[in-house]
Amino acid sequence: MMTLSGAFFGVIRRDLSIALRHRGDLLNPLFFFLIVVTLVPLGISPEPARLAAMAPGMIWISALLATLLALDNLFRADFTDGSLVQLMLSPQPLWLLVLAKIIAHWLVTGLPVVLFSPLLGLMLSLPEAGFLPLLLGLILGTAVFSLLGAVGAALTVALHKGSVLLSLLVMPLYVPVLIFGTSAVQRAVDGVSYGGVMAMLAAASAFTLLVAPFAAAGALKVGING
C-alpha cells in the first residue's frame, strides 16, 4: 500500500483535486496576470512599436508576480489544518513529497500562466518570432519560480505576515531567470539565435530541481516551529 511512487502521486493527485474544488482561486493568478499586463499600455503608451519593445520584459515580470502571489499558499493551507505535520511524519523521504507538492502547485499556478502568455503577447504586439521562446522560457522559468519559491514558502510557513516577507526573500533569487528569460525572447525578436540563452535557462532549472527540494524540506523542518 505504502510505496514511494504511491506517496508521490498521491500527494500530487490530492493537491490537484483540492485545487479543482476551488476553481475560483485557480483563476485568480491568471486574472492578476491579465490585469497587470493591461495596465502597461494604459500607463505607458498604446503605440504598438513601444509596446513591442517592452513586451518580453513586461510579460515576464507579470508572470513572476502572478506565481509569487500564489506561492504563499503552497504549504500554508496544509500547515493551518494540520495535514502538513502528517505529511512530514511520513516515513517516505520528505524531499520527494515536497517535490510532489511543488509539481502540483506548478501545474495549477505556473502552467496556466505559461499557457496564457501568448494571448498577452498578442495584446502587447509581441513580434511573431518571440512567441516560441516566450513559451519555452516561461515553462522553465515558472518551474524555477515554484522550486526556489518553495524554500521561501517553507521558511515562512508559520509566520503571520508571511506573504510580503516571502516576496522579499525570493525575488532577488529570481534575477538570473528573469534575465535569461527576457533575453531569449528579445534575441528571437531581434533575429539572433537564442539557443544558448535557453540552454542556460534549462541548466539553471535543472540545477534548481536538484537542489531546491532538499533545501525546501530542510526549511520546512525549521519553518513549522516558527
Binding site: L148, V151, L155, L165, L169, A219, V222, G223, N225, G226
Partner: peptide, 22 residues
C-alpha cells in the same frame, strides 16, 4: 527581515542559515 520574524532565536538562526546558504 526573516531573522526578525521568528519568535525564538534558535528557529530564526536556522531559518536564516538556510536562506543564506541558498
Amino acid at each position: 527581515a526573516l531573522s526578525r520574524s521568528f519568535s525564538t532565536r534558535e528557529t530564526s538562526a536556522r531559518a536564516c542559515a538556510i536562506l543564506a546558504l541558498v
